[in-house]
């Protein structure tokens, strides 16, 4: 059986909120290392990969591999019933029809309990190759969100160009063009504002802004976002969570002119 207790319901609320507009029905794959999810969007352009390590839960118990097929709209409805600071426990039997969610208030004796019916989801699991990226950029997640939203007002696409000079986000559309360039920057007092650029070779790629803006819904999960780029491979946008847990998005590039 599965029993996984999260100190704060807020973490799962934010993760589900960040991905629910991109993917609808997902398997939450539970085993002794934690709870993982991999799902593509309907257009097969983007891939979501979430890992909540067992260390992110206390306690965590999962005796055998269980796939919980959950509709994220249903999960959102139930998670709205939890206060952000509630303790959340996920429970399921070994061959479950439902997943059980228990919300406990740390400050009162309230205990809420919900069951969500599970679905049989036949999901294609993709192998993501280990990649040595040519450019890795760590930057404030709020800054990345603002850049993507600002540029989307002008264009559907953004080119991300990373050289030793810095990283340039540029777009052009019917009304004109725009760009934002960032250089490496260290803020000793506020390290969450750091911009770090690790480059082994110059990279230039074009991506759909609609998807990037969607990924940025995860900004509340982490102060920093990591962008990993290599020419002609999907962009990795990573929000690191505590205990080595993560929420990653992969986006296929636009190719040719």
């Amino acid at each position: 059986m599965l029993e996984a207790r999260l100190e704060q319901a807020n973490l799962l609320k934010k993760v589900v909120d960040a991905i629910k507009d991109l993917v609808q029905d997902c398997n939450f794959d539970c085993n002794d290392s934690g709870i993982a999810l991999q799902a593509m969007d309907n257009s097969h352009v983007a891939l979501v990969s979430m890992m909540l390590k067992s260390e992110s839960f206390s306690p965590f118990r999962c005796d055998r591999n269980i796939a919980l097929g959950i509709n994220l709209t249903s999960l959102t409805k139930v998670l709205r019933c939890a206060a952000n600071e509630d303790i959340l426990t996920l429970k399921a039997e070994d061959a479950p029809d439902v997943v059980n969610l228990v919300f406990e208030s740390a400050e009162s004796d309230r205990l809420s309990e919900y069951d969500i019916k599970l679905m049989d989801i036949d999901q294609e699991h993709l192998g993501i190759p280990e990649t040595e990226y040519a450019a890795t950029i760590s930057m404030p997640s709020a800054e990345f969100q603002k850049i993507c939203r600002d540029l989307m007002a002008l264009s559907e696409s953004v080119s991300i160009e990373c050289t030793k000079e810095g990283v340039k986000f540029a777009c052009s559309g019917d009304i004109g063009s725009g760009s934002v360039t960032l250089r490496s920057h260290t803020n000793v007092e506020k390290p969450q504002l750091n911009v770090e650029i690790d480059l082994s070779e110059p990279v230039a790629l074009t991506f759909s802004l609609k998807y990037l803006v969607n990924f940025c819904k995860a900004s509340g999960l982490s102060e920093q976002v990591r962008l990993c780029l290599s020419n002609e491979v999907p962009l990795l946008v990573e929000y690191a969570l505590s205990n080595n847990s993560y929420l990653r998005f992969y986006l296929a590039p636009k190719i040719g002119d």
Binding site: M40, H44, V45, A46, L47, E124, H125, L126, G127, I128, P129, S155, E156, S157, T206, S208, V233, P234, Y250, L251, A252, P253, K254, I255, G256, D257
Partner: peptide
Amino acid sequence: EGTQSNITSFFHGG
């Protein structure tokens, strides 16, 4: 602006 590629052409089933 280029043609949108498909994620499955980079990551294969496994």
